[in-house]
């Protein structure tokens, strides 16, 4: 279907990004002449790139990026893992679900960032409170995806696996896991955005490293170019991690794409 139209989706997507950067640069050039606003407040891609080189030279770029990355990996993986465990047992054990579901509902109704000061009081200003906030923010919505995934298993498939001699463990890995996987991977993609916002909030509320810290620090000194650098880096890292999840999807959910289109 795609081949017939000779339409190259990837090329259009890359073109779109390049066009955005070019327009941004042109607008910033124009702003320098026309002074729609103070040019310091609207740096172009070239200025941001120059700032990045400075950060690279004095080694601070690596320091900030790695600090943020470590927090993300700790918080994200902890959050996802706990959610998978909890979600699995909630889907399997009715009473556990009835006990936890209302409580999780109450907590879910409170924006997680409202807990940030509380976490700092409890766990101090260090890494623990930051990772805790990220874990908590990722965890809550992820549980829903896992529960939905585990419940989506077609009982007929479990029956046929058992009649073909599958043990409990084999049924778990060969029927339950593949059935739930699309929901879990989708949840991981959705929750990644929440992980990042929790990261930035945590780093803005008292940190001396990280991408969120660059933004607060830049605000105090009107270093708008630094701020833009941080924003670009956030977008870049987010996209890379999301792309990795998409690759996992493409690898493990090959079977899903093989079906028909609704309407050609």
């Amino acid at each position: 279907m795609k081949r017939k139209r000779r339409y190259n989706s990837t090329a259009v997507r890359i073109g779109s990004i390049i066009a955005f950067v070019v327009i941004w640069q042109l607008f910033s050039f124009y702003n320098e002449k026309a002074e729609l606003m103070n040019p310091v407040f609207l740096p172009g891609p070239i200025d941001v790139f120059r700032t990045m080189l400075e950060y690279l030279e004095d080694g601070t770029l690596f320091k900030h990026v790695s600090a943020s990355l470590i927090r993300i990996f700790k918080g994200y993986f902890l959050g996802i893992s706990i959610a998978i465990l909890l979600g699995y047992f909630m889907a399997k054990i009715r009473i556990l679900n009835d006990v936890l579901d209302p409580v999780l509902g109450i907590f879910g109704s409170i924006p997680p960032y409202a807990f940030c000061p509380l976490f700092i009081i409890w766990f101090g200003i260090g890494e623990v409170s930051k990772v805790f906030l990220i874990t908590y923010t990722t965890l809550l919505p992820m549980i829903g995806y896992v529960v939905q995934g585990v419940r989506s298993v077609d009982p007929l498939l479990i029956r046929s696996a058992k009649s073909l001699g599958g043990s409990e463990l084999q049924v778990f890995f060969r029927v339950l896991v593949p059935s739930a996987l699309p929901f879990v991977l989708n949840g991981m993609k959705v929750c990644l955005g929440l992980t990042f916002s929790a990261l930035i909030v945590a780093e803005m509320m008292g940190a001396s490293t990280g991408l969120g810290y660059i933004i607060v620090n830049a605000r105090n000194w009107f270093l708008v170019s630094d701020m833009f650098l941080s924003l670009v880096l956030i977008a870049l890292i987010y996209t890379i991690i999301k792309q990795i999840i998409c690759l996992l999807e493409a690898k493990f959910l090959k079977w899903k794409k093989s079906g028909m289109d609704a309407i050609e």
Binding site: D154, L156, L157, R159, S160, A161, R174, V175, P178, W255, K256
Partner: peptide, 9 residues
């Protein structure tokens, strides 16, 4: 089974 019940994956 009537509905074949093949493992789609």
């Amino acid at each position: 089974f009537q509905e074949h019940a093949l493992f789609p994956w």
